[in-house]
């Protein structure tokens, strides 16, 4: 009997450790890390494997430290109430130690088996997410998602540096694409969860600006994003396959945002924008790889 209980606890601890890393969010980060590796060149399977493992550990570590810092507000939000710390299943200290351990392991792995620049960029993303976004901006400004979006934009730089050992203009464009994709993507969710954010005292855009202005800003950022995705074609980084794909994918995103602004109620349309924006980014990066390889 006690063996059964011990097994259940072990399983529960394992699932909590996985939960701390936010695996669903990381899956998209890994796409935006792996695709640039193939846009930049032809990495070996070993390099790809190490970058994927290192990237997962670094992002997972950042997410765990984020849960340590946000433990006071996670309890006040329905979306985060079941996390290991507010759920009382793990102590804050053990969560912090786990997060830092993952970041150290990722840094060593990437520096030892890939290159120092890759490790430094991944660590830069970790610091940006933990200190600039979570610790500083998240609770002080509605621009938190705009600037904080840079943390999620590091993976393309990591992937590019892993293959080339450097960062060039196309890598910077990939960074900016993820950076400008973040506001329309995350504000769709923030609109839907604004009551939660309001209760927790987090000044997300819909809480401070209201729904209308947030939707207006989402529209401007979507237009900016589409223009930005076209620019690499202008200097020859990508060709027709990518251009057609980016215009079609971006057109659908723009249509979704416009539909959301016009809909009453807008919740269904906002969910569509949130979910489609995830698919949009993944497909955009796949289109870049396909364009380069054919």
């Amino acid at each position: 009997m006690s063996e059964v209980v011990a097994n259940q606890r072990q399983r529960s601890l394992a699932s909590d450790l996985v939960m701390l890393t936010k695996p669903r969010i990381i899956s998209l980060l890994l796409v935006t890390t792996a695709a640039p590796m193939y846009i930049a060149g032809s990495p070996s399977w070993f390099t790809l494997l190490i970058v994927m493992v290192g990237g997962y550990l670094m992002a997972g570590g950042a997410n765990a430290v984020n849960m340590y810092i946000d433990q006071d507000i996670d309890d006040r939000m329905a979306r985060t109430r079941l996390r290991p710390i507010p759920g009382g299943r793990m102590t804050p200290r053990s969560v912090l130690a786990f997060g830092l351990l993952l970041a150290v392991a990722a840094t060593w792995l990437l520096a030892r088996f890939v290159n120092v620049l890759t490790a430094a960029l991944a660590l830069g993303g970790f610091y940006f997410y933990v200190f600039i976004y979570t610790r500083w901006l998240k609770r002080t400004t509605p621009q938190n998602i705009v600037i904080g979006g840079a943390a999620g934009a590091f993976p393309p730089l990591v992937g590019w540096a892993a293959t080339t050992g450097t960062v060039d203009l196309t890598a910077i464009y990939l960074f900016l694409i993820v950076f400008y994709w973040t506001p329309p993507h995350f504000w769709a969710l923030a609109l839907l969860k604004q009551a939660d954010y309001g209760r927790a005292g987090v000044p997300m855009a819909p809480v401070v600006w209201g729904e209308r202005e947030t939707m207006d800003q989402m529209l401007w950022y979507t237009i900016l994003l589409i223009a930005l995705t076209v620019l690499p074609v202008a200097y020859g980084a990508f060709g027709m396959v990518y251009l057609v794909s980016t215009l079609a994918l971006g057109g659908a995103l723009l249509w979704g945002v416009i539909r959301m602004r016009r809909s009453k109620p807008w919740t269904g349309a906002a969910w569509w924008v949130y979910k489609y924006s995830l698919l949009y980014l993944a497909l955009l990066f796949v289109a870049m790889v396909v364009d380069r390889k054919i």
């Binding site: 800003q217 401007w220 237009i223 589409i226 223009a227 202008a234």
Partner: peptide, 19 residues
């Protein structure tokens, strides 16, 4: 494809300045 630069850059700048 160089002709794409000017319209795309103008649209990006207009949207950024609107924000």
């Amino acid at each position: 494809m160089r002709s794409l630069f000017l319209p795309a850059a103008i649209i990006a700048l207009v949207a950024q300045f609107a924000v």
